[in-house]
Simulated scan of single mutants.
Amino acid sequence: MTNIKHPILVFGATGKQGGSAAKALLKAGWPVRAFVQETSKAAALQLEADGVELVQGALEKTDAIRSAMKDAYGVFSVLPGNLTAEDEVRYGISIADIAAETGIKHFVYSSGASVGNQYTGIPRFDAKPRIETHVRQLDMVTTIIRPMIFMEMLVRPGFGLEKGRLISLIQPDHSIQLTATQDIGKFLVAIFADKSRFGGATLKIASDRLTGRELEAAISKAAGYPITYERFSDNVFATNADLAHMAKSLADGPLSEPLDLDILREINPELLTFASWLATFGRNALNKALSPSVR
């Protein structure tokens, strides 16, 4: 691995994607620097205890971002999910511009797999393609990753599991491609280690692919009792533009594109299946979603 003495700057390191990145990069031998808002919070203190260098700042503080990028080899840019669409675009473009200005050798931006070639008219879905377009125009080696739907989305409280049902976006006989956030960091290790292969690439990431019935079987086995699968009703989609867009994307849009899991496994040999994720990293989230459950 080249440039091993120069750190990777990770945004969002106290969150799921950034946390996965920091952990995997440290394990691979990279020095890791994390841009965090509060250095005194438990998640930040744990990063520091693990050997991550902390830099305090806010996304609107461009001087702090520029300082954090000093002498860094690479940047992993992932933004909080609670931003407005306008702020997401503003911060995403700003981070990329500063990276180009400061001479970052490899910039990786985490986008979304629902990004397509046409805007949707839904601001939060259009923010990421706008950032992607800007990133590709910069005079800098860049890689864009597009994780598929995260496994955590299927085990959130209030979506039916507490009543013995799994309610989701696909028809029972259709398939959905899922990503374990724990796999994100492992892909980043491969990406930063091989700039010649991944520079300029847009890589969709998935860990597993299952039908609605297979989801039903996997969660039933993990729960220890039957869980039935069903799709959201048409009434729900009629009143929720975000869910409707994702359902359409899964049926015939960007999320429906079948990914070659064998190729992804070649990049990351430790891909987590949904079943293995439920038994390990997702166990606590599943337990919370199931309680109180109809048994």
Rank of each mutant, 00 (worst) to 15 (best):
M1F: 00
T2H: 13
N3E: 14
K5H: 11
K5M: 04
H6E: 15
P7E: 11
P7V: 08
P7C: 09
G18C: 05
G18Q: 02
G19T: 14
A21V: 14
A24L: 11
L25I: 11
G29H: 04
G29A: 03
W30L: 01
P31I: 07
V32D: 13
V32Y: 10
F35S: 01
A43W: 01
A49H: 13
D50V: 01
E53R: 08
E53K: 09
E53W: 00
L54A: 08
G57D: 14
L59H: 15
E60Y: 06
T62S: 14
A64Y: 02
A68L: 10
A72D: 10
F76E: 05
F76T: 01
V78W: 06
L79K: 09
P80N: 06
N82H: 08
Y91V: 03
Y91H: 14
I93W: 02
S94P: 01
A96F: 05
I98T: 10
I104E: 14
F107I: 09
V108F: 07
A113C: 01
N117G: 14
I122E: 05
I122N: 06
P129T: 09
E132L: 06
V135C: 03
V141N: 13
T142Q: 15
T143Q: 06
T143A: 09
R146M: 12
M148R: 15
I149P: 02
M151C: 06
R156H: 04
P157G: 08
G164A: 09
G164I: 08
R165W: 00
L169G: 03
S175G: 03
Q177S: 15
Q177G: 10
T179C: 09
A180M: 07
A180F: 10
A180Q: 08
A180P: 04
G185T: 10
G185H: 07
L188E: 02
A190T: 15
F192W: 13
K195I: 09
K195M: 04
K195C: 02
G199S: 11
G200E: 14
L203N: 04
K204C: 03
D208L: 01
G212C: 06
E214S: 08
A217L: 04
A223L: 09
Y225D: 03
I227C: 13
I227Q: 12
N235C: 00
D242W: 01
D242P: 00
D252L: 07
S256A: 15
L259V: 08
D260R: 03
I263H: 12
I263R: 13
L264G: 12
L264N: 09
I267A: 05
I267N: 03
N268H: 04
N268S: 04
E270V: 00
L271C: 10
L272W: 14
S276C: 00
L278E: 01
L278N: 01
T280Q: 14
F281Y: 11
R283L: 12
A285H: 14
N287I: 04
K288V: 12
A289E: 08
A289D: 07
P292C: 04
